[in-house]
């Protein structure tokens, strides 16, 4: 079963993430993914995350396919205009990539090339619509395609975003534009997540709850202050703060497992964003009972 079929079958799916390096040294990342391929259903490949110039997600996704892993090809609207976006989608299709995750993307000024011209010719919703249209054999200008691609398009949603209604409206528009699954921003507050899912589940589109491994109390505080829609409860910050440096991964795994267990009955799967701690993903999954 591929990722799409698993989601449709109702299996609780698990996705993880690969952040391509700044440079060509991609193999260690692929190997790490291979380690856990039995437990993880698909791997997101990020597209110049945080607006930092890196190896591209298209090539990396293709390498994953060669190794027998299933990628979720992430695409942002920051760096390409509508011609390049459509062309890259076609390229992805011929390389065997089916799963695409469409995002607007961070602004260029937040990354390591703040002088760059931000494109944002399209945004997440319009790009999702473009994906849908390509699947119907038409490009944006209405021209017929010679060879029609197939995609399983997804999008992101941020459960902790305020005002939440605005986020729900946007989620609905994304579904309308063609999103078939959602991965969420990091979730730390299960009560709030449950409330969000009450509304989100009405749409009948699978949602994968986001898990980001906490590395320290400082990181938690930083995210609370700076990352939109993220709210790490005091309790977790305290647990991280009280742990010795060497015990921190253990505590972090424990927290992640607690969250994952709590999410099992709320959503269709989880999406783990290890942010460099890929090596602990197996432990997280073990601790969560997978």
């Amino acid at each position: 079963m591929n990722f799409e079929e698993k989601l449709k079958s109702g299996k609780f799916v698990i996705t993880s993430e690969i952040g391509p390096p700044k440079g060509t040294n991609i193999m260690p990342h692929i190997e790490e993914a291979e380690h856990i391929k039995d437990k993880v259903d698909a791997f997101n490949v990020t597209d110049l995350q945080s607006s930092v110039m890196r190896l591209g997600s298209l090539a990396t996704s293709h390498l994953l396919i060669e190794k027998g892993l299933e990628p979720v090809f992430q695409m942002t609207c920051r760096d390409r205009n509508r011609l390049a976006l459509q062309s890259d989608l076609l390229s992805a299709a011929v390389l065997g990539i089916r799963n695409v995750l469409i995002l607007t993307g961070d602004h260029t000024v937040l990354g390591d090339h703040p002088d760059a011209k931000p494109v944002f010719d399209l945004d997440s919703i319009s790009l999702l619509k473009v994906v849908s249209d390509l699947m119907k054999g038409k490009d944006m200008a209405g021209n017929e395609l010679d060879g029609v691609p197939y995609f399983f398009p997804g999008a992101v949603v941020s459960p902790g975003y305020e005002p939440q209604e605005l986020q729900i409206i946007k989620m609905e528009k994304k579904i309308e534009a063609g999103a078939k699954f959602f991965q969420t921003q990091a979730v730390y507050d299960l009560v709030a997540f449950e409330k969000f899912m009450e509304k989100a589940s009405k749409f009948g589109v699978p949602v994968l709850g986001g898990i980001v491994l906490l590395k320290s109390a400082g990181m938690a505080k930083f995210m609370n202050e700076n990352v939109a829609g993220v709210n790490v409860p005091e309790r977790y910050i305290k647990m991280m703060a009280e742990a010795d440096k060497k015990d921190r991964p253990k505590v972090s795994i424990q927290i992640a497992a607690e969250l994952i267990k709590g999410m099992k009955n709320l959503c269709s799967g989880i999406h783990i964003m290890p942010l460099g701690w890929e090596k602990y993903v197996p432990d997280v999954l073990d601790a969560s009972g997978f």
């Binding site: 944002f120 409206i169 939109a228 829609g229």
Partner: peptide, 18 residues
């Protein structure tokens, strides 16, 4: 980002731009 279809989700809790 001159988005036309809704917010990007990057705003912080106070509704300020990323």
């Amino acid at each position: 980002k001159s988005l036309l279809n809704g917010p990007c989700g990057g705003a912080n809790k106070d509704g300020k731009c990323e």
